[in-house]
C-alpha cells in the first residue's frame, strides 16, 4: 500500500488548515487577554436584573459613536419580552467628558417571567465596533465582550 502519498496528503492538509487561520479568528482568540489595553475607550453595557424584578441597564458610550437624541428612546436601546408587560420605564442621560452615560430602568414585577431582553446598541449604532457587557441576574452573572469581528461572545476577560 502506498503510504507516502497518504502521509504527504495529510501533511499538506495540515498546512492548509494551520495556515488558513483568518486575522479575525486570531483577534477573537487572543482578545480576552488584550482587551484591558483599550477597555476605557469601549462602549460599556451593565444590566442588573434584581430579585424584585427591576431591570436597570446602564450604557456608557462615546459621544463620537452615538447622538444624544438617539439614546433618549428606550425602545431603541433595550426591548423586554416577558409573560407580563413591564412598567415604570424611565430614561436618564448624563454627560461624562467624552461619554454619554445613559440609565434605563423598568419594573417587570416579582412574579413575572422574562423571556428575552434585546439590547440594540450594535444594531442601532453602527459606529460601535465592540461592547463590553456585564449582566447580573438573581441566579448568576456574566461578563463578556461582543465584537463585530467575532462570531461569538468573548468570555474570561
Amino acid at each position: 500500500m502506498a503510504v507516502k502519498p497518504i502521509l504527504i496528503s495529510i501533511a499538506m492538509s495540515s498546512l492548509v488548515v494551520g495556515c488558513g487561520e483568518k486575522a479575525a479568528d486570531s483577534f477573537c482568540k487572543s482578545h480576552a487577554q488584550e482587551h484591558q489595553l483599550h477597555q476605557s475607550e469601549i462602549t460599556q453595557v451593565n444590566i442588573d436584573y434584581s430579585e424584585q424584578g427591576r431591570i436597570v441597564a446602564k450604557v456608557k458610550v462615546a459621544k463620537d459613536h452615538a447622538q444624544y437624541q438617539a439614546l433618549t428612546t428606550m425602545a431603541d436601546i433595550i426591548e423586554v419580552k416577558a409573560v407580563k408587560s413591564c412598567t415604570n420605564a424611565s430614561v436618564d442621560i448624563t454627560e461624562q467628558g467624552m461619554f454619554y452615560q445613559a440609565r434605563y430602568s423598568l419594573d417587570c414585577g416579582l412574579d413575572n417571567k422574562l423571556n428575552k431582553v434585546s439590547v440594540l446598541v450594535l444594531d442601532n449604532f453602527t459606529a460601535i465596533d465592540e461592547v463590553e457587557v456585564a449582566i447580573s441576574t438573581p441566579s448568576s452573572s456574566k461578563h463578556f465582550v461582543l465584537s463585530r469581528q467575532c462570531d461569538s461572545p468573548i468570555f474570561n476577560l
Binding site: I47, Y49, L114, N115, K116, V117, S118, V119, L120, V121, L122, D123, V131, V133, I135, T137, K142, F144, L146, R148, D151, S152, P153
Partner: peptide, 14 residues
C-alpha cells in the same frame, strides 16, 4: 432568559 444583542444578520445570544 435570553439576552440578545442583534448585530445586523448576526445575533449574539447570551
Amino acid at each position: 432568559i435570553i439576552f440578545a444583542f442583534p448585530n445586523g444578520d448576526q445575533n449574539f445570544n447570551i
